[in-house]
């Protein structure tokens, strides 16, 4: 008995069905969303991030931050995203359209980072945190990233870029820790992560 054709057709259509339904339908319906033009302020949202932050995005991918951090705020009723201060509205498809790679993430070993630039605006905090998360967040299981920094001997004046570290994390006498360009880029990227604009489809939750 030759049921080859039946098997093949079935196999083909089963996948074609979901490919059409999940991928193509959505690609057609919202695959070309445009930024929102706010008439009042004459601005486009979301805004593109600058070049340094864009490079930081690349570092974010290289180091695999996405395996511990999400970048999506769910609406109230789905977890405590807004209550934890991870954003004051849900994130929607339009928020992501300018990103060449979307880091929605699926794991929250660490907090959501969709709005971390608003929540933690201080670059010093981030430099210290990346150098060793125990400095800012004792008990954290986020890995340290000392290789984003350079430990160097102080010649003459200490660099003004040197990290201001608490004694137990400080380098030996005569040495200083300065960020590399990759650290600068990553911090710029962190600060660029914000959702401080309204979109018509996702109004800010009334308090």
């Amino acid at each position: 008995m030759n049921n080859g054709p039946l098997i093949f057709l079935g196999i083909f259509f089963a996948l074609a069905f979901s490919w059409g339904g999940i991928i193509m339908t959505n690609h057609i319906t919202y695959g070309s969303l445009e930024p929102y033009f706010d008439e009042a302020t004459e601005e486009m949202f979301p805004k593109p991030i600058d070049g340094l932050a864009e490079r930081g995005r690349r570092v974010y991918a290289e180091l695999g931050c996405v395996y511990c951090h999400t970048q999506q705020v769910r609406r109230p009723g789905y977890g405590a995203d807004t209550d934890r201060g991870w954003g004051n509205r849900q994130s929607v498809a339009r928020d992501y359209i300018l990103q060449d790679r979307v880091f929605l993430g699926t794991m929250r070993t660490g907090p959501d980072l969709m709005t971390v630039g608003q929540r933690l605006p201080s670059p010093e905090w981030h430099y210290n945190h990346f150098y060793n998360p125990q400095i800012t967040s004792p008990g954290s299981i986020m890995p340290p990233y000392p290789f984003l920094f350079e430990k160097r001997r102080i010649v003459g004046e200490p660099s003004e870029r040197a990290l201001n570290l608490p004694p137990e994390f400080a380098p030996p006498e005569g040495y200083e820790i300065v960020p590399t360009p990759r650290a600068d880029a990553l911090v710029a990227y962190m600060l660029s992560l914000r959702m401080d604009y309204d979109l018509p489809e996702a109004p800010t939750a009334e308090q």
């Binding site: 089963a14 996948l15 490919w19 339904g21 999940i22």
Partner: peptide, 19 residues
């Protein structure tokens, strides 16, 4: 299995910014 499994993946995005 052929019919249902290939639709199931999007449950990884529940609550997320997709339709």
């Amino acid at each position: 299995l052929a019919l249902f499994y290939n639709w199931a993946g999007v449950h990884h995005l529940i609550g997320g910014p997709v339709p």
